[in-house]
Write a protein that binds this DNA or RNA. Structure first.
Lengths: 266, 266
DNA sequence: TAGTGGTCTAGACCACGTT
DNA sequence: ACGTGGTCTAGACCACTAA
């Protein structure tokens, strides 16, 4: 984005003298609507990703970097901080800011609230088994933070990959939150429909367990009774903290595992 | 920490006139070594937690808040931002900063890299089955980012709660990272030992699945063969991005489930 | 139009880690 | 002692939202 470096008008480059370990050049476009700190953060991230900034290398102190870019130090700090939060950089007092030397090239960016099955060419398909409104049970009401017995939409879906059943999903939503068209539900994911409706997903509370399949579950998922199943229940919240979805899902353990990344809170 | 409010010397309280929706009073102690933004953040968090700031209520604009506290606006912003990152507050341009109205009182603070069993009075106990150095297999070497065949410490532990076996844990660590005393391993957790040794844990990559217990596993965990087991493999990284631990664990699904929270990346 | 948060500046002093 | 990041200030202008 905004990969069109403006022609440098007039401004002569001062003769660079010191040959440092990483005398990389960055530039910001002040006519762009993109925030300056964000432009810098993107360039830094790109340089790290493409190896132009080697793992372990120092970034050069913030004041000098600010001067070189014609930015103030707080702005540069904001850019650096965003990459520290992403786990790409480490700050050390008295030392400087270093590029993290992770073996795993980019242990970040993950767990964007699993679209999982949608992703990575798994040719997913969905079959809607049920899409109705009914009174909320105590459990569902508690999870969604609504009154017991008030209306909720119940959604039951079967998800396939490569023509094989893979998960059974049961979801509960506040009524009227978004239009739940069966055709749309079978062609895309629930979260995408929410985002498209202007809901900003923020966090989810999950519980993952396991149990052996009952006969009915085995039938549904084409597994033997007694086969291992992964169970997951999740409540999802939007950015105002309101619960927008509660679901209880079961997955065939033979075909599915949860992958995610945990960050330690400061 | 630092819960000793200094005696207020002299400073008279200016007569408060306006009765706003939330005319809460905050104070900062400039003689404290605790950063001002952090003091404010803690007070705000406390006020939210104790309900003195009702969900959905506005915080009052940043400039006025700064003036009332005798702080600059960037400092106040930094405090607010930290709570926004925690999911306690929401900012809306043209509207203001609101307290999130989450049903779940505090969906935060979790997933501090599960001490899990250590926590919440589960009277956990650990039995070390194995604590040796051996050459790394290809899988372990890849996970830790070291050369295949180089030395790694192998740790096998059985964890009990209430006298019942509950999980079998197999861990691999770079040699010499921390002293691995069996007595200490049985009285505390691996992560606590790492933190005590000055290692700052940063993130972990996990995979959670399920399978049925083999006969040996059933014996080890006091389950029938064929019982559902939760499996987890995890690689943990410190703040420099170096892998400090790789582990493959199995849990009795009848007694354990993973609980965690996912945050959507901005 | 008025009020809010979003961004940015050009300084300052301090605490810490290295040397 | 020196250099680094950590914190803080007192302003400024802009973009968005609501009334």
């Amino acid at each position: 984005m905004s990969e069109f470096p403006e022609i440098e008008t007039g401004g002569y480059a001062p003769p660079v003298s010191k040959a440092e370990s990483a005398p990389l050049e960055f530039e910001v476009d002040r006519s762009s609507p993109v925030p300056l700190y964000y432009q810098l953060a993107q360039q830094l991230e790109g340089a790290i990703e493409h190896g132009r900034l080697a793992p372990g290398s120092l970034l050069g102190n913030e004041i000098e970097l600010a001067g070189r870019l014609g930015l103030s130090r707080p702005t540069v700090r904001q850019a650096i901080q965003s990459l520290v939060d992403k786990g790409l950089l480490v700050r050390r007092r008295g030392v400087g800011t270093q590029v993290v030397h992770s073996q795993v090239k980019r242990p970040l960016e993950l767990s964007s609230l699993f679209d999982d099955l949608q992703a990575a060419g798994q040719s997913p398909a969905t079959q809607v088994l049920r899409n109705e409104t009914e009174p909320a049970t105590a459990q569902v009401a508690a999870a969604l933070g609504i009154a017991e017995g008030s209306d909720v939409v119940v959604l039951q879906r079967l998800r396939f990959t490569h023509g094989e059943p893979m998960a059974h999903m049961c979801n509960y939503l506040p009524p009227g939150l978004i239009p739940l068209d069966n055709a749309k539900l079978e062609s895309t994911g629930l979260y995408r429909m929410m985002r498209a409706a202007g809901i900003t997903l923020h966090s989810a509370r999950q519980s993952v367990g396991a149990r052996c399949a009952t006969e009915a579950e085995g039938e549904l998922l084409a597994e033997e009774p007694g086969a291992a199943l992964l169970t997951m229940s999740r409540t999802t919240y939007d950015d105002t903290g309101r619960a927008v979805e509660y679901g209880t899902h079961i997955y065939r353990a033979s075909r599915y595992a949860f992958e995610f990344q945990l960050l330690v809170r400061a």
